[in-house]
Design a protein around this nucleic acid. Sequence first.
DNA 1: CATTTCGTTGACTAAAAGTCAATGACTTAT
DNA 2: ATAAGTCATTGACTTTTAGTCAACGAAATG
Lengths: 201, 201
Amino acid sequence: MNKRQLSAIETKRKLISTAFELIKEKGFDSINVEDITRKAGVAKGTFYTYFKRKEDIVLEISRMPFSEIADEIENMKDMEISQKLSHYFHRFMECVETCGIHICRQWTRDVLDPNNTPDNKDGQKWIYDVEMLKGILNNAVSNGELIQNTPVELLTYIIISELYGMMVSWCMSDGKFEPLEWTDKFCDFQLKTVLKPYIGK
Amino acid sequence: MNKRQLSAIETKRKLISTAFELIKEKGFDSINVEDITRKAGVAKGTFYTYFKRKEDIVLEISRMPFSEIADEIENMKDMEISQKLSHYFHRFMECVETCGIHICRQWTRDVLDPNNTPDNKDGQKWIYDVEMLKGILNNAVSNGELIQNTPVELLTYIIISELYGMMVSWCMSDGKFEPLEWTDKFCDFQLKTVLKPYIGK
DNA sequence: CATTTCGTTGACTAAAAGTCAATGACTTAT
DNA sequence: ATAAGTCATTGACTTTTAGTCAACGAAATG
């Protein structure tokens, strides 16, 4: 990797971290692209070298903390399904808290934005979550933890709904409650209930 | 009420129903304010007599179908809590289907939009839902259906999360599943589980 | 050293949201 | 009946900011 490529990566990194700070503090709509580029020390046009639309940077910002979760789950291969899912829930909400309300708000708005071009679809963490969860469940079916005719697709959507619902409610309520406290107290419980009919052996 | 006031009401009604059709068909971002006013047969400026921002009309559009639910619940005074909640879930999803994916998407985006001015806060169905649910639960506590120290506030948020999570997941998945089918199959079940520890007598 | 590549620049364009002074049909007062 | 006043309506205009692009020049290539 040569000097040019390195500085390009550095420029993009700088833009992402600057945007993270600015959005976390002031909110997405209160800042414009020039605020980001000015603070990052580059020209406005540079932003559009790395991002198609202003909105796209939020997907990248959130990808950072959330992507770690996938690796962590990967390392829990031999643990039982409820532990994996509990961990996933807990860490998801931890990331929600790390990102803060402005970024979670905007992230949700982005994913619901129909102008979000198909090229960005892979920037949608949403997709990964669906696949990751399906993987966890399918795995549990393979090794007999869950019975053969478990409705994996359906359970995936139920579980994801719960998580996203929690995040969205948190944003809507302007952060009135503690996301983590809530997950730890109630989601685990609900999780076990949803899975119970399908537990094998 | 004189002729002028009547025609003003009619103008607003026309704008709302025209916007409903247009947004349902093409999506909020694909149409502009002039598309709405042109089709409604009024000038652009008229839109801003009735709505502060383009976004505000979506809150009004969705208020129409959803507001009926409150009345229906009111008329179920003597029924038991699980029936009330089941009905609420079912009707909520019915309204989601009636509004269609474009409007549900934009509605969620609006409620999460920090530029949504405080004057509009009462246009946010969100608030009504929270209050209505709290009412149902508090009622059940009063008449002994639920035990005295039921955490009403917490349960309210859990139930709402579930509903909104379902709607948001539906929007995110581009309408891949049938909202109503889902609610009827799973939410009732989950609902009963969440309430079980607090059932009185 | 000549040539090409490509990250960077910032003035410029585009698009549509939102404004507001003027209008005239309708209401009210005399 | 007429004048005075009100207010819903109008559409040209302003504002804002996202997004474009031709030109630049430092670094890579041969």
